[in-house]
């Protein structure tokens, strides 16, 4: 039996929606954010509309049952039922949307806020546009020295950072669960792999309080490390972060 076009369209939409929920929430165990799912579905609806209406025949098949529902005298009963249910459904939906809940409002975090052109830490002014890791050069010039610097950076990390960022640098340290926003996961391709070392220096040295306004609401518990670490220690720990995760810092060389 051939499924009516209108039902096909509805099934496609339901299927895609269910598919997203099934794949992300159940199979992959990573819930799909509802804000994103709504936008996804909006464009899936647009795409479905396009496929089902680009030809006259198909449009006719989609429209005719709806037309019949509204105009056909023989469908009076069904019409009355639909006309009662639809407003009720929208009323219920609207109520669900606006009823007060205990859920805190959605918060946005700009993960990589734009850095200032220069930053004042350790009593000096650093130009973030040109700031480079002074130890990076040893990677090529003196690999042995580089390895020992990375080791020292590792010590700094273990003594200071791993409590939150985790011993695997995955943001799952012993204290991580108690923090919101949770500590960054450096293993993620979207974090340090996207950034320059100067950016990391800025973020480490000035911590949560040093974030620009545009990155709020931002209650980051990241300490202002310039008060606890020396400049060299910060550079070393940056070496360690990249070394351990295997990422290369972003560079801006114009090729």
């Amino acid at each position: 039996m051939k499924i009516p076009r209108l039902l096909q369209a509805i099934l496609v939409l339901g299927g895609v929606y269910g598919g997203f929920v099934l794949v992300f929430d159940v199979i992959l165990e990573q819930v799909i954010p509802s804000s994103l799912l709504n936008m996804y579905m909006f464009f899936v609806v647009a795409g479905t509309y396009m496929v089902f209406t680009f030809s006259e025949e198909s449009t006719e098949q989609i429209v005719s049952p709806i037309k019949a529902l509204v105009e056909d005298p023989s469908k009076k009963m069904l019409r009355n039922v639909v006309f009662v249910l639809l407003p009720l459904f929208f009323g219920w939906f609207t109520y669900q949307q606006i009823k007060p809940s205990f859920e805190a409002p959605l918060e946005l975090r700009t993960i990589h806020p734009a850095p200032p052109a220069a930053v004042k830490v350790f009593g000096k002014r650093y130009n973030l546009l040109t700031l480079e890791n002074p130890f990076r050069k040893f990677e090529k010039e003196d690999p042995e020295k580089f390895a020992s610097l990375v080791r020292e950076g590792g010590d700094v990390y273990v003594k200071n950072c791993q409590y939150c960022h985790g011993d695997k640098l995955d943001g799952q340290g012993p204290y991580a669960q108690g923090l919101s926003p949770v500590p960054l996961n450096f293993q993620d391709v979207g974090t340090i792999a996207q950034l320059q070392e100067g950016y990391l220096f800025w973020r480490i040295a000035t911590g949560g309080p040093g974030l620009p306004k545009e990155a709020t609401p931002w209650l980051s518990a990241m300490p202002v490390w310039e008060d606890f670490l020396t400049e060299d220690e910060i550079w070393k720990v940056i070496l360690f972060l990249y070394d351990y995760t295997g990422y290369q810092p972003r560079s801006w060389e114009h090729e």
Binding site: V31, I32, L36
Partner: peptide
Amino acid sequence: LVLSNEELKALGGPYHKYL
């Protein structure tokens, strides 16, 4: 991603492993 607190908790962080 714009996440509700519940989603944040369910994901265990602001990063989505697949998205």
